[in-house]
Design a protein around this nucleic acid. Structure first.
Lengths: 181, 181
DNA sequence: CCATTTTAGTTTCGTTTGAAACTGTTGCAA
DNA sequence: TTGCAACAGTTTCAAACGAAACTAAAATGG
């Protein structure tokens, strides 16, 4: 069932009486729901990774993109994992310490370091991928086949829109001085 | 279109050759997609809140649940916002500093503090709710009416399942010693 | 060529986080 | 009662984070 939509009456700015302010219920607020769901899922998975392999989510992501045996630069990893370069840099230095990754500076461009997984990391990859996919399956088991396809579509559309809105410069017009009582 | 499902061949544990390991593409991996989407959305919204009102997401959530003018304890807030008590405690102390919240210790139970928004915070509530709903609308504008209903259903089902899986005790059987090369 | 800008990645710094320990209060039970 | 467990909330400490400054190498262009 479509959620009952709240009415959006104009709000009087100084109202201490909450009566005419449109209500917002967090539990029906999309950003909140997404955040809670993503959190639950990530957290569960992170505990699994941590317990079994002692790695964090950033490290797992790097293993995931390099798991095919490819070699790439930190920048490429950042793009593919949607992490920023600082996060990638730190994860890589942790992985160097635990010899999960190999770094050799590029031949043609000495700024770019070529990164490859070590056999140790590849062994983790081989074990962690089935684990991750199993967990994903367990979650999506809550859905019918049709619903899984819907989910795929919806997530893509929402991400595209969210990206678009995120890229939009801050609404300058609404820039007013902070609220005072 | 339903995402092409990856085959799940058995993996040889020590394989340094990546050939027979089931592939995992982050961009199709549900936990990753959820995390990126939730992140994009939260981040965009957080910047809006911060710019306009100088508040963080935890503070916004507290304002959201107390915005009706109700009074409740920190514990209740924690439940309703899905934040843990530490996060709530810290947000409240920030809000006390900026006089967004009022705390009076309970009469019958002096452990529980009764929390209420100040008029200043209610004014923020009145302004922020339309902003938040507008952003939500902008995001969901990417979807048809049908799709919005689907989204509601899917998120509820996924959250229920994720909660269930999170509550499940860690798979003890899989507890093996860390991977060594 | 040399000076400037751009790019790749790292470091730093102040803040936020999460887990665990802690304080104070209430409820329960011998 | 008083002694102990459970509860509400806070503090502490170490790890993780993000933004911005920084270093080093390549590309640009006058």
């Amino acid at each position: 069932m479509p959620p009952a939509r709240r009415s959006r009456t104009a709000s009087s700015k100084s109202a201490a009486a909450p009566a005419d302010i449109p209500a917002l219920h967090l539990t029906r607020f999309l950003p909140y729901r997404l955040s809670v769901l993503a959190n639950t899922v990530s957290h569960t998975l992170a505990k699994l990774y941590e317990k079994r392999f002692g790695i964090t989510i950033p490290e797992w992501r790097i293993i995931a993109v390099l798991g095919g045996g490819e070699t790439m630069s930190a920048g490429e990893i950042a793009q593919r994992t949607a992490m920023d370069k600082v996060q990638v840099s730190r994860a890589i230095s942790r992985m160097l310490d635990s010899s999960l990754i190999l770094r050799e500076s590029g031949d043609t461009d000495r700024r770019k370091a070529l990164l490859t997984l070590t056999p140790k990391a590849l062994a983790i990859y081989a074990e962690i991928v089935p684990m991750a996919l199993t967990y994903e399956d367990e979650v999506t088991d809550a859905l019918s086949i049709d619903e899984r396809a819907q989910l795929d579509t919806l997530l893509s559309k929402l991400q595209a829109r969210a990206d678009q809105l995120a890229a939009r410069p801050a609404p300058v017009a609404a820039q007013v001085e902070p609220v005072e009582e």
